[in-house]
Measured scan of single mutants.
Amino acid sequence: DFYKILGVPRSASIKDIKKAYRKLALQLHPDRNPDDPQAQEKFQDLGAAYEVLSDSEKRKQYD
């Protein structure tokens, strides 16, 4: 669930989604977690979630 990945409720605004994405991107970035083999995958999932939820048309289709 993309909302769960970003840690935001379904009613979150685009601004809230962007804020959550930036915070998590810093935490999950593979360069900051060189010892975590799943860091790259988590970071890619985060990017996919943000791409869908930050675009109003894609978000409507997802919901």
Score class of each variant (00 low, 15 high):
residue 2 F to C: 06
residue 2 F to W: 14
residue 2 F to Y: 15
residue 2 F to K: 04
residue 4 K to C: 08
residue 4 K to W: 03
residue 4 K to E: 04
residue 5 I to N: 04
residue 6 L to A: 02
residue 6 L to Y: 00
residue 6 L to K: 01
residue 7 G to P: 00
residue 7 G to L: 01
residue 7 G to C: 05
residue 8 V to H: 00
residue 9 P to W: 03
residue 9 P to G: 14
residue 9 P to H: 05
residue 9 P to I: 05
residue 10 R to D: 11
residue 10 R to G: 06
residue 12 A to I: 02
residue 12 A to G: 04
residue 12 A to R: 01
residue 13 S to K: 11
residue 13 S to V: 06
residue 14 I to L: 11
residue 14 I to A: 14
residue 14 I to D: 13
residue 14 I to N: 15
residue 14 I to V: 12
residue 14 I to K: 15
residue 15 K to M: 11
residue 17 I to C: 04
residue 17 I to P: 01
residue 17 I to Y: 00
residue 18 K to M: 09
residue 19 K to A: 14
residue 19 K to M: 15
residue 21 Y to C: 01
residue 21 Y to N: 02
residue 22 R to D: 14
residue 23 K to R: 14
residue 23 K to F: 09
residue 25 A to R: 10
residue 26 L to D: 12
residue 26 L to E: 14
residue 26 L to P: 13
residue 29 H to C: 04
residue 30 P to M: 03
residue 31 D to A: 12
residue 31 D to V: 07
residue 32 R to M: 09
residue 32 R to P: 02
residue 32 R to E: 07
residue 33 N to G: 03
residue 35 D to F: 10
residue 35 D to G: 13
residue 35 D to L: 09
residue 35 D to S: 10
residue 35 D to N: 10
residue 35 D to E: 11
residue 35 D to Q: 11
residue 36 D to T: 05
residue 37 P to G: 06
residue 37 P to L: 09
residue 38 Q to P: 03
residue 39 A to P: 01
residue 41 E to A: 10
residue 41 E to W: 07
residue 43 F to N: 03
residue 43 F to I: 07
residue 43 F to P: 00
residue 43 F to L: 08
residue 43 F to V: 05
residue 43 F to S: 03
residue 44 Q to C: 07
residue 45 D to W: 08
residue 45 D to V: 12
residue 46 L to F: 03
residue 46 L to Q: 01
residue 47 G to I: 13
residue 48 A to Y: 12
residue 48 A to G: 07
residue 49 A to M: 02
residue 49 A to K: 01
residue 50 Y to K: 03
residue 51 E to Q: 12
residue 51 E to L: 08
residue 51 E to D: 08
residue 52 V to A: 12
residue 52 V to L: 06
residue 54 S to I: 15
residue 55 D to M: 03
residue 55 D to R: 05
residue 55 D to P: 01
residue 57 E to Y: 11
residue 57 E to D: 10
residue 57 E to L: 11
residue 59 R to A: 02
residue 59 R to K: 08
residue 60 K to F: 12
residue 61 Q to N: 14
residue 62 Y to N: 01
residue 62 Y to P: 01
residue 62 Y to C: 02
